[in-house]
Design a protein around this nucleic acid. Sequence first.
RNA 1: GCGCAGGUGGUAGAGCGGUCAAUUACAACAGACUGUAAAUCUGUCGCCCAUUGGGCUACGGGGGUUCGAAUCCCUCCCUGCGCACCA
Length: 449
Amino acid sequence: MVLKKEEIISDLLTRGVADFIDPDGVFRRKLEQKIEGKYPKDIIIKFGIDPTRPDIHLGHAVVFRKLRQFQDIGCKVVFLIGDFTAQIGDPTGKSKARPEVSIAEVHENLNTYLTQVGKVLKLEENLYDWAPNSAWYISVTDYGQGTMAEKTGQWLEDRKRIINRDSHKRVWTVTLFNLMYTLRTITHARLIERDLFQDRLKAGEELYMHEMLYPVLQGVDSAMIYHIFGGCDLEIGGSDQKFNMLMGRDVMKHQPEPQEPQAVLTTKILAGTDGKEKMSKSLGNYISITDAPNDMYGKVMSIPDTSLVNYFELCTYTPAEEIKAIEAGLAAGKLHPKDTKMRLAREITAIYHGEKAAAGAEEAFSATFARGEVPPDLQAVAVSKESLLADILLREKLVKSKAEYRRLVEQGAIKNVQSGKRIDDPAHKITEAAVYRIGSNRFIKVEPQ
RNA sequence: GCGCAGGUGGUAGAGCGGUCAAUUACAACAGACUGUAAAUCUGUCGCCCAUUGGGCUACGGGGGUUCGAAUCCCUCCCUGCGCACCA
């Protein structure tokens, strides 16, 4: 499948994209040249991540898949790890006295990150790199003596060998002088125009200086990446990051040696499995990209029909044309939502676990829910003869308490799959090998010894 | 430091001496219905034992008043707001 240059670029810049800010089409032209093989440098795509241990879900993956698309045409992704800003940036009153994140932990968390993200991104040296922002902020902090400084220093040494450019010899650290130089080009009005700040002010809430500075620091990160990697052509993030990323443009323009400001791309929001809120861990409506195939498939199937198109656009590689056809088909009643959703679930599962596992998950799902059968991979549990079913379920953590078990029995939620009979006696004893189903998706296979 | 307002179950948020294991909403779970869902309807929703019923632990921590406290008092801790101190 050979796509035309225009099609590739169009897909890059519109699919799943909420905003793309590229005045005068500077970045777009770079892309065109890159595809034609005429762009001599790396195109650097910046992406900021938290130094905390991640659990990446499909919502985050939208951004990663976008990054991957850029890698596919030869752009280089740089992870900016906000290990320094994370320690000062959070709004006051939430979690104060943040612990220092050592570079060793940053490393470790980065690795956890990469093992997950590696399912989507390419991690070859020419297409990927990373940088902790403590590397250039340590000079204005009190971490000068700590492990972080030493280790970040090591990071810098490593970089010097890898990136053999002149530019990075100039600014390795941000000094208060540098920072003030930058700050005198940014106005109060520019900063407080941000919605978040406006809302706070209107609500009569406090707004602290460090919070106002945060966007500036994020901009400085861009400038530093420019120095170190010889460019910072585009920053990608969720739409909540739009303001911060735009600030990067201002900062870059006003460096002592003005830089070409980065373009900014924000991705659309992926709805959670409840179809109401955005996907987020704290709301519990997320699908982790490390979920087992069966879970992942099942969770996708549990999204409401109304989210189908949203998911196709943001979570699959299905061509835009086809998605349009699907949307039309669903609206006209020609496509069955269930079949469509099964296709979606299968495609998504295949991305993270491979085609084979996805097919397996589909079969397991059909068996369990559509045909009411037992999942094929159910493991048998050894129990002693005459055990109370209640005790076994409790032991296997299929019920939280005996009281819950009782309620389930009363409600007719537990049945013996072979005989099809409901368990109506709370004191039910296990006398022979059997499979029990509790509710719609809890199963246990028991074998009395 | 002083003053004010608060801290209740997964969350929000009632209750302000007994009828409180705690109204209600959301979430969750089960049943019915379906296309897996969603929506809708019904039921459940601290733990332990029991057939009706009983016991235990819970309303920030500790102590007290009372026959009896989530509810009153003391104290400590925490959060928000105002003021002061410092600068």
